[in-house]
Simulated assay, not measured.
Amino acid sequence: MLKRSILIATTLAPALALGACSTGTKNRGLESVHQPVVSRTDFVFDVNTSGNNLAPGEAQRLAGWMQSLRLGYGDRVAIDDPNPYGNGIRDDVQSQIGRYGLLLSDEAPITGAPVQPGMVRVVVSRMKAVVPGCPDFSRVSQPEFESNTSSNQGCGINSNLAAMTANPGDLVRGQPGSGVTDPAQSTKAIEVYRKAPASAGASAGTSGGKN
């Protein structure tokens, strides 16, 4: 009986090993299964109005709120204003977000609660791109009997792409092209590099070469 049990275990061992090799993330092509996922978060701030302008002191409150959010490029700012004639309010809010180099969007996203009378809602939409499931070493690289690429393939490059994209929304829909080419804009990065002052290390290396 003992000999028979040993033979059965010996026979099943290769099958169990092959079964273990087939676990983990399957990546059957050259394109990685790990792709950036873009999510959006809406931040809302209600401010009081006085006629067609913000009430006294509300501009300062709004400025402090935007500073706490660290408003910047890629953020989308809109106003949910029931008053169709509140152009003065738009100008007041635009003067605040203009400090961050942003412009007001024409359409505000839908929020959870209605705007109370005598108030307007400022909505800041912020997108974030991440690559879920990375790093992924769930599948052994060898032996590989199903012709899968590494389960971690694409994690590095796609995670870097998600982190370096200034506006994550561009990963969903890119910026429209322009029919006008501006040479000054295209060579701006080169000019900044050439006009940058030499560092201490570079100066020391140059003087050492002359000696």
Rank of each mutant, 00 (worst) to 15 (best):
V172N: 07
Q185F: 11
V115M: 04
G64K: 10
P135H: 09
R90H: 09
R99V: 13
G169M: 08
G174Y: 01
L12K: 08
Y85G: 09
G74N: 14
V131C: 03
Q67P: 00
G72C: 02
R173V: 11
S186K: 14
Q96T: 13
A189P: 04
A202M: 10
P14F: 03
S203W: 08
L104Q: 02
D75W: 00
R99K: 15
A198Q: 12
Q60P: 00
G179Q: 06
A198I: 13
G205E: 12
G51P: 04
P183M: 07
Q185V: 15
P56M: 02
V123M: 00
R70V: 12
Q60T: 13
G57K: 01
L16I: 15
S138A: 03
D81F: 05
S138R: 01
Y73Q: 14
A63Q: 14
G169P: 05
E31P: 09
A13M: 15
Y85M: 10
N52D: 12
A189E: 13
N167L: 03
G133A: 10
G169F: 06
G209F: 08
I79W: 03
F137C: 03
T165D: 09
D136S: 06
G98T: 07
G112N: 15
T181Q: 06
S32R: 07
A198C: 07
P197R: 03
G133W: 04
V37W: 05
Q153S: 13
P143F: 02
S50P: 00
D75T: 01
D91H: 09
V124K: 06
S138T: 15
A20Y: 10
P56A: 07
G112M: 15
L103K: 13
L62R: 09
T149M: 08
V122H: 08
S125G: 07
G72H: 01
Q67S: 15
P84G: 08
G174K: 10
R90N: 12
M127I: 03
C155H: 05
N52H: 08
Q116I: 11
V131A: 02
S141N: 13
